[in-house]
């Protein structure tokens, strides 16, 4: 098929995949540091309504509106991170879900800014699919670089062993706050992009369903790998097409497929690649093990092991 024709017929799915990638990445970036936060989904609403309102009602340029929304997000997220600093795991997840629902209620009630139940219309499309793709690629590149660097190791320590992280000089609370704000920023960017692509944003675009979509895309794509959000977002963007034959059973088929992936590929699709790399690493240099005796002691000359008493 001609690429142009394919793009034309699939642009809606591409746009959905791009925005979902950012939303899933917003959940991932917090989770990687051991922070179970869905606040990014709330800031998705802040980003969409904020950028839309400033352009439609105030007549601001896209760049000014986007920068202002990003700055506002950073401040609000930092304050929210301080407010929720004592909450961990499921308690933090519940608090951030409540935040998402509050944003949705505000969207419904604050008619002057959000357009109420009808929503905000006439948002000028400035980025387009190409512009949003650049934002997504930048976010993924940053995520990939982080995963492979010392920052990635720090995140792993924070996620797997906070006590050890602290004992190795990592300021756990500060890094949790940074992860929270980073997550919010990605959510706000998703909102700015979504409003730009749809040119309209309503309270129906927000809420618990968005949390489920982002989380499912992340888990199926690969929770810890930088490519996970993109893979999962693509799968769920095109799944309605692939499962069209299922008719009214499609939702059930989607759910079933998700369960199958969760059971047999708990690290998600991208996790399969990571697992293969680990296995290859384990197979490498088996001769190194000969450096140890059967009881696990090092096979070094005994005359160098004398301990003076």
């Amino acid at each position: 098929m001609n690429l142009e024709i394919w793009f034309g017929t699939n642009e809606g799915y591409i746009q959905a995949a791009l925005v979902t990638t950012l939303l899933a990445a917003s959940v991932q970036v917090a989770l990687r540091s051991g922070v179970l936060s869905f606040a990014g989904i709330g800031f998705y609403g802040v980003g969409a309504y904020g950028a839309g309102y400033l352009q439609v009602t105030r007549g601001w340029s896209f760049a000014m509106a986007a920068l202002t929304v990003v700055a506002l997000t950073l401040v609000l997220a930092a304050l929210l991170a301080l407010l929720l600093a004592r909450l961990r795991a499921l308690y933090l997840a519940m608090a951030t879900i409540a935040f998402v629902l509050l944003v949705q209620i505000a969207a419904l009630s604050w008619d002057g800014v959000t357009g109420g139940a009808i929503g905000l219309f006439g948002i000028p499309p400035m980025l387009g699919t190409g512009g949003v793709a650049i934002v997504v690629v930048a976010a993924l590149v940053l995520s990939a670089l982080t995963q492979r660097s010392g920052a990635g190791r720090r995140q792993r320590l924070l996620r797997e062993d906070e006590v050890l992280a602290g004992a190795l000089g990592i300021d756990v609370r500060r890094h949790h706050r940074i992860a929270f704000v980073h997550s919010a920023l990605l959510g706000a960017l998703a909102g700015i992009c979504q409003a730009d692509l749809l040119t309209v944003f309503t309270p129906e675009n927000l809420g618990f369903g968005v949390i489920v979509s982002a989380l499912t895309a992340l888990v199926v794509g690969g929770t810890w790998h930088w490519a996970g959000p993109f893979l999962g977002a693509c799968i769920f963007a095109w799944m309605p097409v692939w499962l069209a034959f299922a008719g009214e059973w499609r939702a059930l088929a989607e759910g079933g497929l998700t369960i199958v992936v969760l059971i047999f590929l708990p690290a998600g699709l991208a996790g399969v690649v990571q697992l293969a790399a680990r296995r290859a690493r384990r197979m490498r240099r088996p001769e190194d093990r000969s450096a140890f005796t059967s009881d696990g002691a090092a096979n070094i000359p005994s005359d160098s092991l004398e301990v003076s008493r």
Binding site: R278, R281, R284, R285, R289, F292, D295, G296, A298
Partner: peptide
Amino acid sequence: GLEPSALPYGV
């Protein structure tokens, strides 16, 4: 270059 789980406890 090895993973810790491939090593004896003492190592």
